[in-house]
């Protein structure tokens, strides 16, 4: 056998087809009334056979225009979608970054929300308690913010919730971090902090898979870029090469690249 390391993420012949209902019955009433007229179904192939190996320690950016299947691919790696066919193999714990506010409860205090959110991301209570101070320190570096940790989350600004969520996610010590365009929120200082943390993750040899339209960010962070188009891998290679040809592409790809975020 070769000495090549076991991939962190292996996608083999991965396909995902969605079945769309055209006259969508949004209510039970409508569904019952239309019981004798079967809905017209349309199948949309979003991923049409993806083979991809991502090695431990790699930071891979997925680029492509809207509808190319980037987010679907990330959802399959996170196991929130089931593949239509093909296989997703993941070695190591995965931490996805959640959208702003997801998983938090406004009536609970910051402390209680840290416990809940940590559990959602797969931490035991003991692990959360051990990391607690560090989580708060990373999220709220100012003492006046840190004081709020015992008050209900409804008193927090969006930025504070975002910081707290990111802080918990990075403290789960995952082997693989999945990032889907969420770092665009937050003030500049915090974005810098996030980038520092991502670089720290890279230094620790963790695997990062992220989706972005922000080519400045991609160039800065990614080692390798996978360009998806119509559910297939169009290009896969070193960051500079793929981003250059992606930006050179006329049409939506270039315009998306020109307006980061």
């Amino acid at each position: 056998m070769t000495g090549a390391p076991k991939p962190s993420i292996r996608l083999a012949g991965l396909r995902k087809t969605f079945t769309l209902q055209h006259r969508h019955a949004g209510s039970l009433k409508a569904a019952m009334l239309s019981i004798f007229t079967p809905p017209r179904l349309e199948r949309r192939e979003v991923l049409r056979g993806i083979d991809l190996d991502i090695l431990p320690g790699e930071t891979v950016a997925i680029v492509g225009r809207n509808g190319s299947g980037k987010s679907t691919l990330l959802s399959l790696v996170a196991r929130v979608y089931k593949p239509t066919s093909g296989e997703v193999t993941v070695n190591g714990t995965v931490a996805p970054l959640l959208e702003l506010g997801a998983g938090f409860h406004p009536d609970l205090t910051g402390v209680e929300n840290v416990e809940l959110y940590g559990a959602i991301l797969g931490l035991s209570r003991r692990q959360i308690q051990a990391q607690f101070d560090s989580i708060v320190r990373f999220a709220f570096d100012r003492p006046d913010l840190a004081e709020k940790i015992d008050t209900p989350l409804r008193n927090y600004s969006d930025g504070m919730k975002m910081r707290l969520g990111f802080s918990i996610a990075v403290h789960t010590d995952p082997a693989i971090l999945l990032v889907d365009e969420v770092l665009a929120v937050g003030d500049e200082a915090f974005q810098h902090k996030c980038l520092d943390k991502i670089e720290e993750f890279q230094a620790q040899g963790k695997t990062i898979l992220f989706v972005s339209h922000d080519m400045v960010m991609v160039r800065r962070v990614a080692h390798r870029v996978v360009w998806l188009q119509d559910g297939l891998v169009l290009r896969d290679g070193p960051t500079a090469d793929v981003v250059d040809s992606y930006m050179a592409e006329p049409g939506p790809a270039a315009s998306a690249a020109a307006s980061p975020g």
């Binding site: 959802s75 996170a78 196991r79 929130v80 995965v94 996805p96 970054l97 959640l98 959208e99 506010g101 997801a102 998983g103 959602i120 991301l121 889907d180």
Partner: peptide, 11 residues
């Protein structure tokens, strides 16, 4: 209520 979570995290 948990929709934003289950869209991103497996459980």
């Amino acid at each position: 209520m948990m929709y934003g979570v289950i869209r991103k995290v497996y459980m």
